[in-house]
């Protein structure tokens, strides 16, 4: 055990591994980050096509609602793209700790955009279905959809914040040494906020989808529905906030 820690600190070529982990983490961020947005937008488009088949006269409204919904589902994919660029092109000083931080950043953003992308797509899909059933409700359904998708995207924003802190850790005079605990806690912070964002993204997507569906059936309840959606969505976000807090503790309180 002692040998392993000494071997890690002295005999491993961390300068090559730093470069390798930059590239691997960049690929991880964008590769995993593409899943959620892709699935979510596909679901949204599928529902819009179904609705168009039912109500061909509402094509214009449906395409507009679909594109707005997809644009918001896309944001988590764009976050992943930005983090992937930062990982690939920002300069980093080679060290053991930065390897953990970069891999953590890639995992955080890749997994973190999974739930938000799919969740935003669920909201958009249910909104398209509602507009297809009841084209007059398009105004209040679109408002509910946008509010719900905003809530859905917040886990991806938490992941983005942690990923950016990890990528810029060396500018804060962190991640320059070779402490195993700090290396692992940076990786762990990324895993924590990344995996922790999957559930809240999907859960809030279900809330927002249910709310869009309900506003379409009964547009006069839009105000009450927004209140129920925000209350339910906030509770569904709570575990994502716990993950965010634990990630912060892992980054800033571990010495």
């Amino acid at each position: 055990m002692t040998d392993l820690v000494q071997w890690l600190a002295t005999s491993v070529d961390w300068s090559s591994l730093t470069v390798a982990s930059k590239y691997f983490a960049g690929g991880l961020a964008m590769g995993l980050g593409a899943i959620g947005a892709g699935v979510g937008e596909g679901y949204n488009a599928g529902k819009a096509v179904e609705a168009t088949a039912r109500q061909p006269a509402a094509t214009g409204d449906l395409v507009r609602a679909m594109l707005v919904g997809q644009a918001i589902a896309e944001t988590s994919g764009i976050f992943a793209l930005v983090v992937a660029f930062m990982l690939l092109f920002l300069p980093h000083q080679p060290s053991m700790e930065i390897v953990g931080a970069l891999l953590g950043a890639g995992t955080a953003m890749g997994l973190g955009s999974l739930g938000s992308g799919i969740g935003a797509g669920m909201a958009g899909g249910q909104a398209a279905a509602s507009i297809g059933r009841n084209p007059e409700s398009r105004g209040s359904v679109t408002m509910t959809m946008l509010l719900g998708q905003g809530l859905t995207s917040s886990p991806a924003v938490f992941s983005l914040v942690i990923a950016v802190i990890l990528v810029f850790g060396q500018q804060l005079n962190k991640y320059l040494g070779s402490d195993l605990a700090i290396t692992v806690s940076a990786l762990s912070a990324g895993l924590c906020v990344g995996i922790g964002a999957i559930g809240p993204g999907l859960g809030t997507g279900m809330v927002a989808g249910g709310a869009c569906n309900a506003v379409g059936r009964n547009p006069s309840t839009a105000t009450t529905m927004t209140r129920v959606m925000l209350a339910g969505g906030a509770v569904s976000q709570s575990t994502g906030i716990y993950s965010f807090v634990i990630a912060f503790i892992l980054i800033f309180l571990v010495k």
Binding site: V184, L191, C192, G194, G196, I198, G199, P200, I246
Partner: peptide, 13 residues
């Protein structure tokens, strides 16, 4: 430390 992150992350799903 690693298991703390994994614990909260997976536990949040």
């Amino acid at each position: 430390l690693l298991s703390a992150g994994v614990c909260m992350g997976i536990g949040a799903i």
